[in-house]
Design a protein around this nucleic acid. Structure first.
Length: 270
DNA sequence: AAAACTACCTGAGTGC
DNA sequence: TGCACTCAGGTAGTTT
């Protein structure tokens, strides 16, 4: 479910409840996430949360002695609730905060993870080889053309590769390619620099717009307060197979690329 | 080196 | 109602 805007929305939602607060209890009800939840998580009782940030789709909570690394996977979400609220099915763990609130990690498919990193999280195995953030200045037309040069891989796969740029998942890859007028199957190395510049701008724009609207609720994404995101109504091609293109009226097509659905307008995207 | 494929899971929806 | 099947927003790790 969650792509970068949903992760950013989650971060902004939970940070105020955590920053400067002490964890007073930890309740791990299911250790079998993507990787087993380590014992250091149980040992967080008594620590103070000093920072909350995001790198790619990883949420990072600085607790002084180390960093909690949390990924929502395909179906994860965080919710701030009152401790007496009944645990839902697939609520995998909860952190009681000294404010009286409880942060719960909910993840039906268990593709998410909750890990602990002792040293600099930037050096962590899951994080150290990631590409630039999409909003970083270094992610520009020069950079993307250098990455695309000589590559035969489809442009959609290139921008979804986290070693190239982070945070562009299936929905926003489709949307950005539509905005840039680029066919998702086009070989990355055969796209001119002007069009790549347009794609870079589109990625920044679509992610920014979605964050402003609280992310995209497609099927089940809910924010930390249980509210949906409102970007779905702004989707131009994603999940719109058979419907008319909002620009030209042509029928939106769906194809499958490396096992994932791609939606595009055959007239607007070449 | 690059590209393709596998694996990890549950739940919703569809067609019979 | 029930069963079989497909599909879903991610990504590390393995194979080709």
């Amino acid at each position: 479910m969650p792509e970068l805007p949903e992760v950013e929305t989650t971060l902004r939602g939970v940070a105020p409840y955590l920053l400067g607060r002490r964890i007073v209890d930890v309740d791990v009800r299911e250790r079998r996430l993507r990787w087993p939840v380590p014992k250091e998580i149980d040992a967080l009782v008594g620590v103070t949360v000093k920072g909350a940030s995001r790198r790619a789709k990883y949420l990072l909570f600085d607790v002084g002695r180390g960093t909690v690394i949390l990924h929502l996977g395909m179906s994860g979400s965080l919710r701030v609730s009152d401790p007496d609220v009944e645990w839902r099915k697939h609520d995998q763990l909860g952190l009681r905060i000294d404010s009286g609130k409880e942060l719960r990690f909910h993840d039906p498919r268990r593709f998410g993870c909750v890990l602990f990193c002792k040293g600099d999280p930037a050096k962590h195995k899951l994080i150290r080889d990631l590409g630039p953030e999409p909003f970083a200045e270094e992610f520009d037309a020069n950079y993307l053309s250098a990455q695309a040069k000589g590559k035969k891989v489809a442009i959609k796969q290139l921008v979804m590769n986290s070693h190239v740029v982070v945070g562009v998942g299936n929905i926003y890859a489709c949307e950005a390619l539509f905005m840039a007028g680029i066919h998702p199957s086009r070989a990355a190395g055969r796209i001119g620099r002007v069009r790549l510049a347009r794609l870079v701008a589109a990625i920044k724009e679509v992610l920014g717009q979605s964050i402003e609207q609280g992310g995209t609720t497609l099927r089940d994404f809910l924010r930390e307060d249980g509210e949906p995101g409102y970007f779905k109504q702004s989707l131009r091609v994603y999940d719109r197979e058979g419907e008319p293109c909002r620009e030209c009226g042509a029928t939106v097509k769906r194809i499958v690329q490396t096992g994932r659905s791609t939606f595009y307008c055959p007239k607007c995207q070449r």
